[in-house]
Write a protein that binds this DNA or RNA. Structure first.
Length: 882
RNA sequence: GGGCGCAUAGCUCAGCGGAAGAGCACCUGCCUUACAAGCAGGGGGUCGCUGGUUCGAUCCCAGCUGCGCCCA
């Protein structure tokens, strides 16, 4: 047995003030290089890439949540001896940053277009250096054990090279193409966005029905966007619709434009909706676009990039789309062409998830990724188990989505981002220029003006950050990453893109090794304490940094981990963080107590035979805890892990073992010495288990306890393999029940918790608690019966192996009514139990069909109930009349 | 419109075929030398509704109601 010499010990402060030590501890960890991974080590790899936060972002509660889980997983693996890498970084957020810097420039009175592309980008980089990445310093406050030496940014040279390489490969494989297509257009940002960046929201608009043509050939069509009529090139009806059959093939006058348009028949028209005739605006509506294609209709674009009516040759040109909506409607009204108006008319409208404005379907030339083969491979990787989705229920959602994916619009009409590496020649040449190639020079050559969707570079994140396309030591060691921790809300945006591009980019590897991650741990979003989504508009957002200031990082992390059920949302409130702080304080105080009693972390425990029931019980429980925590964490059951640790720490270790240890310490000698070892061992294990969740307090306590360097690099506990001592556990269980019953009796009788009363205990030998008499007396605050002892009241406690009679000297002040009430209540419960069990046992189908062990269990419960009733009745009868 | 999920103690959530659980909140009593950010004790639920399967249903199945999410 070795012992930490007092000299090695670090002193604990008398109270725990996280703010005093957190920053210093974190810096110490970074300086010591604990978080830096070595690609050349022999240890088995464990790697996580951070879901890159937006360079404009600051730490919000969702980051804190996700980071806590990742840090927890990484710290545990590090302690388990893995070469653990948690790779940090940010993405460049093309649209958000461009908007931000454009706005800044406007405030200075500068139009970014005047500045030119180069000048503008200079300003963006300037902004990035000065204000970008606030989140990185905030991550330190959370205690994130990331490898700062590997920090990455999607616009870094290396990652840009990866983007360029990927583009070129896809292009040459025919998986990237350019086409004029209807895309989701953001007039505010003047760019195309992809399908997933569109959110559908119910809005109150109007449904206007208008009449095209006149007399017999008139048709009524309805729309929520009247202004689009300026771009109509047909009216469509169902081919089987008898009402309109005679009109098909004729031309009809399109009001306000001086044009006539054909009436066509198309099977996709729903004859039961409205009048059964629909206006067709191919350049501004997805369904109409399809109709236009089928019928080879002209597709005039009637809006400019900013959402203003253009090129219609009408007086509406130049009007904003919403202004035009009213103006066109009123113009039609003047002509008596408005047939009906429904207002408000609630319908679903696509909005840009970035700028929040209604998107405008717009025909334009864009670059697309042909997702077919990529999506198939991405689906298969999950289908054949190379990538596990946790919780598995969410895999279905992944399949539903990835198996029905549309081609991905990747060009953005922006300057900030990876410029599309395509050069156009004077004679219509199109050349894709790879990263190490020289672009064509000469008259008339120019590069595509657009940049790539930010998700394109984020999709390469798991390998571009490790040096791809080069064959690097990092890639060899850490790819595929071990687990991806992210929100289910981003499954489509990001996870699917990494799957597609990862499998494609790494296709020179075996299918098993090409996947970007082996497991996907999905979490939900953080909600408020009423389960409401946090949002600025409802004013229920919280600032994790403010919580850290108030309660300490450990408390915040503990709360977040405690709320993390697989795939489920996590409700959060400051009351719960306060509760977590109490836990941290409890742990601190318990350790302080132990150290005050000279507890130490022994290398070897004393021989089991030398230990008490209490020692063996708590050590066995501790062993079971290690197993439980391991099992839960392998399954990403964070909430249950925290629950198990909380319960053990508070309800078993602090409430019982620490109290029992006081009795043992009082005995002195070898008993006290062994108790110090057990206290130290349990704390040693417990602090290590808790470290990934609450890194700061455990670091302080564990180094104080052990005198060793840091718990960050301590070994993760493993079960001892010692068989649990069931007999000891049974006796401790009996002890706890006996003590609780006595406390209950005392409370009923109005005896103050701190008041010692004389009591006589009979029957301890039958329940195996003779040796525990001092403990019972200590925990139940009983004195040995002395001179003139008079058991004015007595109680019988039924335990597994018998019963104990406790005679208590209450100096005559017996509250008979309270006692009667209690006994009556217990009696009622016992009778109910008897009824229930007898009913079952009297049912022949039950005794015949139920498994034998269940029947036995019910029989024994009936026996217990009978004994209990007998005991309570005897006691009730013996009570004096009140 | 299509799909998925959830309804369990005042609140937030576990449990998911054989005795209703936790945290917080609540009530009572305690500053008992680790801890009042604490200790001891206590109250509180026909497990959304209606049927069905089963010896037995909070748990499985069907329908209904009410919420939530995703997609169009």
């Amino acid at each position: 047995m070795t012992q930490t010499s007092p000299a090695q010990r670090r002193e604990l402060p008398s109270t725990w003030n996280p703010a005093d030590v957190e920053a210093e501890l974190y810096q110490r960890w970074v300086d010591a290089g604990y978080f830096e991974a070595d690609a050349n080590s022999d240890r088995p790899p464990f790697s996580i890439v951070i879901p890159p936060p937006n360079v404009t972002g600051s730490l919000h509660i969702g980051h804190a949540f996700e980071h806590t889980l990742m840090d927890l997983l990484t710290r545990r693996r590090r302690m388990q001896g893995y070469e653990a890498l948690w790779l940090p970084g940010m993405d460049h957020a093309s649209i958000a940053v461009q908007a931000l810097v454009e706005r800044q420039l406007r405030e200075e009175g500068i139009d970014h277009r005047e500045l030119g592309r180069e000048g503008f980008l200079e300003r963006v980089w300037q902004w990035k250096e000065q204000h970008g990445g606030a989140i990185l310093s905030q991550m330190r406050r959370l205690g994130d054990g990331v490898d700062w030496s590997r920090e990455r940014f999607t616009m870094d040279a290396g990652l840009s090279r990866a983007v360029n390489t990927m583009f070129k490969r896809l292009y040459e494989d025919g998986l990237i193409y350019r086409a004029e297509q209807l895309v989701n257009w953001s007039p505010n940002m003047r760019t195309a966005i992809s399908d997933i960046e569109v959110e559908h929201r119910e809005v109150e608009g109007e449904l206007v029905t208008m009449r095209y043509g006149d007399g017999d050939s008139a048709l009524e069509v309805a729309t929520t966007r009247v202004e689009t009529m300026l771009g109509d090139t047909a009216v469509a009806v169902h081919p089987e619709d008898d009402r309109y059959r005679h009109l098909v093939g004729t031309e009809i006058e399109l009001p306000l434009t001086g044009r006539t348009i054909p009436v066509i028949a198309d099977e996709h028209v729903d004859p039961t909706f409205g009048s059964g005739a629909v206006k067709v605006t191919p350049a501004h509506d997805p369904n109409d676009f399809e109709i236009g294609r089928r019928h080879d209709l002209p597709m005039p674009t009637i809006m400019d990039e900013g959402g203003r009516i253009a090129d219609t040759g009408t007086r509406f040109d130049g009007m904003d789309r919403f202004e035009a909506r009213e103006a066109v409607r009123e113009a039609l009204r003047e002509q008596g062409r408005i047939v009906a108006e429904k207002r408000p008319y609630v319908h679903s409208v696509g909005h840009s998830s970035r700028s929040k404005e209604p998107i405008e379907p717009r025909l334009s030339m864009q670059w697309f990724v042909r997702v077919g083969p990529l999506a198939k491979a991405a689906g298969d990787a999950v289908r054949d188990g190379r990538v596990e989705v946790h919780p598995p229920e969410l895999a279905k959602r992944y399949f539903d989505w990835i198996d029905n994916l549309h081609d991905w619009a990747i060009s953005r009409q922006m300057w900030w981002g990876h410029r599309i590496p395509i050069w156009y020649g004077p004679n219509g040449e199109v050349v894709c220029v790879g990263p190490d190639e020289e672009p064509p020079t000469g008259e008339g050559w120019h590069q595509d003006e657009d940049v790539l969707d930010t998700w394109f570079s984020s999709g390469l994140w798991p390998f571009s950050t490790m040096g791809w396309p080069d064959d690097t030591a990092d890639l060899r060691k850490f790819y595929p990453t071990s687990v991806l921790v992210t929100g289910y809300d981003i499954l489509f945006f990001w996870v699917a893109r990494m799957m597609m591009l990862g499998l494609y980019g790494m296709s020179d590897r075996s299918p098993e090794e090409a996947v970007p991650f082996r497991r996907i741990a999905l979490h939900g979003i953080v909600r408020d304490k009423h389960g409401k989504k946090m949002s600025k508009s409802s004013g229920n957002t919280v600032d994790p940094l403010q919580w850290i200031d108030t309660y300490g990082t450990d408390a915040v992390r503990f709360t977040l981990a405690r709320g993390a059920n697989p795939g489920a949302d996590a409700p959060m409130s400051d009351e719960w963080v306060a509760g977590a702080r109490s836990f941290v304080t409890k742990l601190f105080n318990a350790t302080r107590f132990a150290l005050g009693k000279d507890a130490f972390a022994p290398e070897r425990l004393p021989d089991r035979a030398e230990l008490t029931d209490a020692d063996r019980w708590i050590l066995d429980r501790c062993d079971a805890l290690v197993t439980e925590v391991d099992e839960l964490l392998e399954d990403f059951q964070f909430a249950k892990t925290v629950e198990a640790l909380y319960h053990f720490t508070w309800d078993e270790f602090c409430d019982w073992y620490v109290e029992l240890s006081k009795v043992q310490l009082d005995e002195g000698g070898r008993r006290a010495e062994h108790t110090r070892a057990v206290l130290g061992r349990v704390l040693d294990v417990l602090l290590r288990l808790l470290h990934p969740i609450t890194p700061f307090v455990t670091e302080v306590l564990w180094t104080a306890l052990t005198g060793r360097e840091s718990v960050v690099v301590a070994e993760w506990p493993v079960p001892t393999g010692e068989p649990a001592d069931a007999a000891a556990a049974g006796r401790i269980d009996a002890l706890r029940r006996l003590v609780t019953e006595i406390r209950r009796f005392r409370a009923d009788q109005g005896v103050k918790p701190n008041q010692r009363v004389a009591a006589d205990l009979e029957g301890l030998e039958t329940v195996g608690l003779v040796g525990h008499l001092p403990a019972v007396r200590s925990l139940a605050r009983l004195d040995a019966p002395g001179e003139g002892f008079n058991a004015s009241s007595s109680m019988r406690v039924g335990l597994a192996d018998g019963e104990v009679t406790v005679g208590i000297d209450l100096s005559g002040a017996v509250d008979v009514a309270a006692e009667r009430k209690r006994l009556t209540k217990d009696l009622e419960a016992a009778r109910k139990e008897l009824d229930g069990t007898e009913k079952k046992l009297n049912n022949p189908s039950f005794t015949e069909k139920a498994p034998a062990e269940v029947v036995d269990k019910i029989r024994s419960r009936r026996q217990t109930a009978l004994a209990e009733i007998e005991r309570l009745n005897t006691r009730l009868e013996s009570l004096p009349e009140s």
